[in-house]
Amino acid sequence: MNLFRLLGDMTHLLSIVVLLLKIRTVKSCAGISLKTQELYVIVFLTRYLDLFTKYYSVYNTAMKLVFLGTSIGIVWYMRYHKVVKQTYSKDEDTFKHYFLILLSIILALLIHRAFDVIEVLWTFSLYLEAVAILPQLVLLQKSRNIDTLTGDYVFLLGAYRALYILNWVYRFLMENHKFRWIPWISGLVQTALYADFFYYYIKSWKNREKLKLPA
């Protein structure tokens, strides 16, 4: 495992820690899209089916279980916790996320490396992850007040994917990995979706101003 990959995983983990911190200590999920969180549960459930079929390492298995457990936990808090659920920005979380699921299903059925259940579901999870942040980005744009933890959460989530791209470049150049169209293009699309957010996040950080996205 190279440094970029490790940093990417740690950023991903840290983003979840930041979100859980907001939910468990501030008891709020204001500005967090339940739709994006539900899409992540679907992403992890479909991608990590190989937990039952293939063993890579203790690290790999542990991380998969953490991502599955925390994503389900977050959705549970947002839907059912009696204090947290009242802070959910339901009226602003309006993105039609079913459309993203449908699009990813169609794309995975059309474009995949092999036509078997695990492979198609794995491909589906990559396509869905690429666009899963969209409801969250739309919600942020509608929020007049983006708190620091929410901004940091989205930034860390974007940084994770950017670091994964560096990891792929490293593996390609140093570890003889082949060019893989499906994960690479999905990953590039996913990272590109954050470009606008990164720009405003870094700008607000440099000017020590509160983060605000133009409508």
């Binding site: 990959r5 995983d9 991903h12 190989d50 293939k54 890579y56 390492s57 790999n60 991380m63 998969k64 991502f67 794995w122 994964y164 990891n167 792929w168 570890e175 003889n176 990995h177 082949k178 893989r180 994960p183």
Partner: peptide, 10 residues
């Protein structure tokens, strides 16, 4: 030869 897929990633 070990398979160079990307499924060892998360």
């Amino acid at each position: 030869l070990k398979e160079k897929s990307q499924k060892d990633e998360l």
